[in-house]
Design a binder for these strands. Structure first.
Lengths: 151, 151
DNA sequence: TCAATCCTAAGTATTTTACTGGGAATTCCA
DNA sequence: TGGAATTCCCAGTAAAATACTTAGGATTGA
């Protein structure tokens, strides 16, 4: 039940974009450095995310990527679905899966997998990039030049 | 986020044991035939399940496996935890994982993975083999009033 | 022009998965 | 007592998936 690096890196990278939302395009080299992810691997992931309409790109110098929608309108689930393919624990309960076993109607294990799938889906569809940004700001120690609060 | 065959087969097989709970040992060759799982692969899985105390074995002719506890005291989660290792979507939120990244305290992605892990755990810990048996009996078309449950 | 950047496809080493095989030990039953 | 049915154990292995890297082309701003 492990998430692959695609999903993990993808969420981290999208969070990074959310953190800089509204500041113009962010280059992959910056994300690569900040989040410690291989640049060329990121290129792959962002290709998929762009094709699926989550981000827009601008080429050339000073180019980069931006979220296509505000962070509160992009869920972690959307990112994971694109990069992981599906979050179904077994193939037979995933959405695009057309052919199912003859016994699917009376299959009790299938019901278990459906429950897992549903709960995972509910969780990830319920978390937006904006939520992550908010969390981040709360967790972050406040750095104020005037106060000089140390921790 | 796929479950491996170990987890899938393991739950199916344990469900089979639950269905025959109280009828003496069930041999792997029977489970193999009924659930359509390779016998020698099942041997591997049952080795783990036995070592972890979910089932007991009796060797020799007429031997086999039995649930060590009643079906309502064995959860799907217990089975999956043994066979899948852990249900954590990323290593850093799994239980036995001691070393964590320096930033774990302020890691927002980690919180996402924790939420997923928690929800999956809640679901699978909340389903017992008894629940599956009950479901199975409900789904099963009633065959004949005179005949009892023939499985 | 040139450097920074996106874009794409292909290649590859490593790891994981999903088994299979061989054989030893144990136990029931005829 | 012998043989069939079973668990038990460990090692091997083919195929698939993962996690990248490499190479190079296309685009754009300064």
């Amino acid at each position: 039940m492990r998430l692959s690096t695609k999903g993990r890196y993808g969420v981290k990278a999208m969070f990074d974009l959310a953190l800089h939302y509204g500041e113009g395009p962010v280059s992959l080299s910056h994300i690569s450095a900040r989040q410690d992810i291989s640049l060329s691997y990121l290129e792959q992931l962002f290709g998929s995310l762009r094709k699926e309409g989550l981000i827009t790109s601008s080429r050339g110098a000073q180019g980069g990527y931006e979220l296509k929608k505000p962070p509160d309108q992009i869920t972690v689930g959307a990112v994971l679905n694109i990069l992981e393919g599906t979050l179904a624990p077994v193939a037979c309960v995933s959405k695009g899966h057309s052919q199912h076993c003859a016994k699917s109607g009376e299959c009790v294990t299938r019901r278990v997998w459906e429950s897992i799938h549903q709960s995972v889906t509910d969780v990830v569809e319920g978390i937006t990039l904006q939520d992550m940004v908010k969390d981040h700001l709360n967790l972050q120690p406040i750095k104020s030049p005037s106060e000089g609060a140390s921790s």
